[in-house]
């Protein structure tokens, strides 16, 4: 069943702050096998002009996708999450995420399309720090594949 177009433009309340820890960044950098010292050594990060270790570019997805859960699981929207695959992902950074950040995410439904029985949902997550400054915007396209014929 096609998703309700009236949800386009709907924004959800900001999430509670996510506190970015040095060790969580280290764990993520190790998981992707990236030895760049800017992720683990505060002195190396400072030498590049950052106040503390920074996170790899895609680190923030864990935070924005969790925030997008309010959209994905909105019973009124009625997305069938068991059929969802990740279509596109994009980030635009005002600055890198860094240790010590307390980040909130505001999720907005940017577009809903129906194509060959697939539901396509575009969600924008605006990420702000504790001072209210914009850090990064994440765009996530989810595709709910058409249900098979019964």
């Amino acid at each position: 069943m096609a998703l309700d177009q009236s949800f386009v433009g709907r924004s959800y309340p900001p999430t509670a702050p996510y506190e970015v820890g040095r060790e969580k960044i280290r764990e993520f950098a190790e998981a992707v096998g990236d030895a760049n010292p800017a992720y683990t050594d505060p002195e190396a990060a400072k030498a590049l002009g950052h106040p503390d270790v920074i996170a790899p570019p895609t680190f923030v997805f864990a935070i924005t996708f969790k925030a997008a859960g309010v959209v994905v699981q909105d019973p009124q929207l009625g997305l069938d999450y068991s059929r969802v695959v990740h279509g596109d992902q994009k980030f635009a950074y005002a600055r890198p995420v860094r240790a010590g950040d307390r980040l909130t995410v505001t999720s907005t439904i940017e577009a809903i399309k129906s194509l060959a029985g697939n539901d396509i949902l575009d969600i924008r997550g605006e990420v702000h720090d504790e001072a209210g400054e914009h850090v990064v915007t994440a765009w996530t396209k989810l595709v709910a594949r058409a249900a098979e014929e019964a």
Binding site: G49, I54, P56, P57, D88, Y93
Partner: peptide, 27 residues
């Protein structure tokens, strides 16, 4: 995971991962 690996070609080239301004992919 694949998206995280692919950008390493860029971040290793520039040195500072904080120099990435935009990054997008289609799976």
């Amino acid at each position: 995971f694949t998206m995280a690996e692919a950008i390493r070609v860029v971040t290793d080239w520039v040195g500072d991962p904080g120099a990435v301004v935009e990054y997008g992919v289609r799976f």
